[in-house]
Structure formats: structure tokens, C-alpha cells
Write a protein that binds this DNA or RNA. Structure first.
Length: 501
DNA sequence: ATTGTAGTTGGCTTG
DNA sequence: ACAAGCCAACTACAA
């Protein structure tokens, strides 16, 4: 007996139905050939080692929403537990797969995995369709246009894409026919597993401020795009890193998981800006989206983009290991209330404002602790809902003045920076509650409060709240000198590599 | 080739 | 309250 062949769409960072060309290709292929359609998601049992609880919850919510939407068009999500390179070849054989569609992703781990799967597909006569749909622009053609090298400045990137026509949004117009349904459609073996199964106790997680899923992402997009004035006047540097409610859109987790198409965001922004006076990149909302495109272009075109060693764009800096300091930073126990508040918000809610990321990233690296940006990037990977491989590495290099940004002597002050937008430290009082009762005068520098004030406020520094792990005023000046020395070495190395006239 | 200019978003002191 | 000037002087890109 001959088995009916299957068509697979493999969901990864494209957890949506709208603007998903690869998914539509799979549906059409199955329909045209009367084959079985199986949209799959592969989840590695070890995922907990790389993905923190909050992001895992976001992912599972997104999968649930995806499955619900797929069922509305008469198919479903098949969730497979295991490592893709081990379980997919077996399944492809069992399901008699002839056609596979997926999205191009650039995360180094996914790229490696894809190579293995594609090799298997080629050897087994499985036709693979890969679609570039995670970004507005095709980053490969941007690099090509720049004569094969990546643009190292944002403005250069903008000039490269200025005349590129952005493609329209793809929609799935009709449901899947019964002929394309598998006989195991109702099998619970492919249902979305529980978070508990992956070692997450949901009741121990903090309140869910940003629920995952395409529906939530689209809703959030609509809410913000309806505020025409707000969109047209948006200037990122003028938004506040320490407002109690986010001063920006928080669309990033939806875009990073692919719940929301970057291209849809682009077209909606164009629509809102059209005919009105509006702010421009780099500070505008469109500018924010273009930053993402910029880092994707840089990340896709650079070997070892997420590392210092072997990374051609990254200045080599002799960072030092200090596990105690790293731990204090990650847990929000540095003794600098603004830094600690940010790190605690990050851990609790999975999202912090972009400028808050600047503050803590500068503090960990060139500003105060002199610890490698790679260590910080790992902590962000764990905690951020909107974690994204290229944006994370790119921004960490920026803030540590390892690439893209070079004014290393501009150091964020953990005392002064937050005061600009939150004089009374309401943000600190929320996320570092042990300092809640401190007078505003001392809320950014509690160690300066006289013992009596500390007592009255109910928190002695060094007991209820840690002493500062470093003296910023002193250490940041030393670090500027160290950066200066590292830059000099770097320059000499570059000069030696340059061919002599 | 050399040089001028621009570059998402600083901190601190002085007026 | 806010703006100007200083700090010490980076790199990429274009001309």
C-alpha cells in the first residue's frame, strides 16, 4: 500500500498565520497535490537551560494561540518533543514527507541545525522552500549591494535600503480542505505540552504583563497605531527608561517570536505617517524598526557575531572575569538602586526600556564592572521576552563600545541618569521595595543617608540592602583609561594588517 | 590621500 | 529651569 505524502511547514520564529509566505506555500502545495498538511513545532526538552521561565511562558502562550488559529482553518499544530536534528529525519520518513517549508532564521544555532536538516532533505528527495520573512528587507541583498561587506553605520544602512520597494503582506485566504487532514488529527500525542512538563511552576511566575501570541501582538499593534499623534511625534531618546508603565510600544516580544510580522508593522507605520508631519529615523518608531533591520544585516553577514574572539567587527578588549560581581549585577544587588531596579524589573517582567538596557549594559562592561559583554548577553537571553540573537549581540557590542559605537568616555552615571526622568525614584521604590521609604534626596545614593535616616526608612545599607560593589566615581575613570589602551592596541593591530604603500 | 564631518539618546560645572 | 561649554578626542564614511 502506498502512503499519502505529507507537506510540512516547520514553525520556528514565525508563530503567526498573517504574512507567512512559507506557511501559505505549504498549504497550497498540499491542496494542489492532495497531500497531508502538517504544521509542526519542535521543542527541545533542554530548552529550559537557555530560555528563562517568562520567555518559556510567552512561547507556550504563542503556540497555544497558533494552534487555535490553525484549527480555525481546519488544520492544527503538531508539537514534537525532541532535538530537531534527531527526531525530524525519523518523522519525515514515517510521514512520507515530500515538501518542507520554513522561514530563514539567522540565529547561529538554528543555522547549524538547518544545514543538517537540509542535507537530509536533499538526500531523501524532500523539496525545501525557505522564505525570507522575518525582516522587512532581504539582508543578504543589502550586503550584496554594499559590495559584500556589512554597513557599519546606521545611516549607511538607511542609504542602502532607501530605494528598495518593500513587499506587500501575504494573507491566507481560505481554509484547508478535509482531504489534507491527517488521520491522526485528533491525536493528543502532538498537543502542546504543559509548562510544568518543562520544569516551570506557573503559579510561581509573576503576573503576566505581556501574554504571548499572534492575537495579542496584532491587538497591541492596533492599539498603538490608532494613536496617530503619538506615533508621528515619537522620539525614542525622549521616552523614559523608568516610567512605571512602559513609555514605548512593547511590540518587541511579538516581533522577535514572529507573532507579529515586521513587514506588517512597517506598512502600518507608513500608513499612519502618510500625509502627516512625523519624526524620522533614527529616533522615530520607523527608526526603531530600521535598527532591527540594521542589526539583522550586520549579524547575518558577520562570522561569530555573538562572540568577541573571531568577530571581525568587534574590538578585542581584555575583560576580566568576576563571578561575584556578575551575580550581583544579574540579581539586582549591586548597591546602586537604579541599576538594581532595572535588573529586577527585567527578571520579573521580561521587558525593560531600551535606555534602561543601556544603563545596565554600560555598568556591567566598560562603565563599572569590566565584565565581558558576552556574559551580559547570556543573562539577557535568559530573561528578555524579546530576546533576539542579532539584536542582543549587536546592542551589547554597541553599549560596551566594542562595535558601532566608539565614544567610550561617555559613561552612564548610575546616579544621575535615572534622575532626569524620575527625580523622586518612584521606579526604584517599586522594584527595590526595601528602599521604598527613603527620602528622595537619598533614593539614588542610599549609602549617603545618615544612619539615623537609614533607620527611620527601615533599611540599613549593608544589611537590608547591599553596599555598593564598586565606587562608580573612581572605577569608571580607571575603565576609560583601560578602554583607551585597548583601542590603541586595536589600532596598532589594524595598521599592521594594512598593506604598506 | 588626507581631512572634514557626522554619529539614536552623557555627565558635570557654570552661568 | 535650562542651556552652554568642557571633558578628551572615538570611528566610518564621503569628499
Amino acid at each position: 500500500m502506498t502512503k499519502v505524502a505529507s507537506v510540512i511547514h516547520w514553525f520556528r520564529l514565525d508563530l503567526r498565520l498573517h504574512d507567512n509566505l512559507a506557511l501559505r506555500n505549504a498549504i497550497n502545495e498540499a491542496e494542489n497535490r492532495k497531500q497531508i498538511l502538517r504544521p509542526i513545532y519542535v521543542i527541545d526538552p533542554d530548552i529550559k537551560n537557555r530560555v528563562g521561565c517568562n520567555r518559556l511562558r510567552f512561547l507556550f502562550q504563542s503556540l497555544k494561540n497558533l494552534d487555535t488559529s490553525l484549527r480555525k482553518i481546519n488544520t492544527r499544530l503538531y508539537v514534537i518533543k525532541g532535538k530537531a536534528i534527531e527526531c525530524l529525519p525519523k518523522l519525515f520518513d514515517e510521514w512520507h514527507v515530500k515538501f518542507l517549508t520554513l522561514q530563514v532564521d539567522i540565529d547561529a544555532d538554528l543555522v547549524k541545525q538547518d544545514e543538517v536538516i537540509e542535507e537530509f532533505c536533499e538526500a531523501n528527495n524532500i523539496f525545501v522552500v525557505k522564505r525570507m520573512q522575518h525582516t522587512v528587507y532581504d539582508f543578504n541583498s543589502v550586503v550584496k549591494k554594499n559590495n559584500g561587506s556589512i554597513p557599519l553605520t546606521y545611516q549607511k544602512f538607511l542609504s542602502l535600503v532607501s530605494d528598495v520597494q518593500v513587499k506587500d503582506i501575504i494573507q491566507i485566504s481560505k481554509g484547508v480542505s478535509d482531504e489534507c487532514k491527517a488521520s491522526d488529527y485528533d491525536s493528543q500525542g502532538y498537543d502542546i505540552p504543559s509548562l510544568e512538563e518543562f520544569g516551570v511552576n506557573e503559579s510561581e511566575l509573576s503576573e503576566c504583563k505581556y501574554p504571548g501570541g499572534e492575537s495579542e501582538g496584532l491587538k497591541r499593534l492596533d492599539v498603538y497605531m490608532a494613536k496617530k499623534q503619538w506615533v508621528c511625534n515619537f522620539e525614542k531618546p525622549k521616552s523614559s527608561p523608568n516610567s512605571i508603565e512602559p513609555s514605548t510600544t512593547v511590540l518587541s516580544p511579538y516581533i522577535s517570536h514572529g507573532c507579529l510580522s515586521a513587514k506588517l508593522f512597517y506598512h502600518k507605520l507608513k500608513q499612519v505617517e502618510n500625509g502627516s508631519k512625523h519624526t524620522l529615523p533614527p529616533v522615530s518608531l520607523m527608526g526603531q524598526l530600521m535598527w532591527r533591520e540594521f542589526y539583522y544585516t550586520a549579524g547575518s553577514g558577520t562570522e561569530n557575531f555573538d562572540k568577541m574572539v573571531g568577530n571581525s567587527v568587534c574590538t578585542q578588549i581584555p575583560w576580566k572575569k568576576n563571578d561575584a560581581h556578575l551575580k550581583a549585577w544579574a540579581e539586582g544587588k549591586t548597591g546602586y538602586p537604579f541599576v538594581d531596579a532595572i535588573m529586577r524589573q527585567l527578571k520579573q517582567e521580561g521587558w525593560i526600556h531600551h535606555l534602561a538596557r543601556h544603563m545596565v549594559a554600560c555598568f556591567l562592561t566598560r562603565g563599572d564592572l569590566w565584565i565581558s559583554w558576552e556574559e551580559g548577553a547570556k543573562v539577557f537571553e535568559d530573561f528578555l521576552l524579546d530576546y533576539d540573537w542579532s539584536l542582543n549581540a549587536g546592542n551589547w557590542m554597541w553599549l560596551s563600545a566594542s562595535a558601532f559605537f566608539y565614544k567610550y568616555y561617555r559613561v552612564y552615571s548610575p546616579v544621575a541618569f535615572g534622575k532626569k526622568t524620575d527625580k523622586d525614584g518612584l521606579y526604584i521604590r517599586k522594584y527595590v521595595p526595601e528602599l521604598k521609604k527613603y527620602p528622595s534626596e537619598f533614593i539614588y545614593e542610599p549609602w549617603k543617608a545618615p544612619k539615623g535616616v537609614q533607620k527611620t526608612a527601615g533599611c540599613i545599607i549593608g544589611e537590608g540592602y547591599p553596599n555598593r560593589i564598586v565606587d562608580h566615581d573612581k572605577v569608571h575613570k580607571d575603565n576609560i583609561q583601560k578602554m583607551n589602551a585597548a583601542y590603541k592596541v586595536n589600532k596598532e593591530k589594524k595598521a599592521m594588517k594594512r598593506p604598506r604603500q
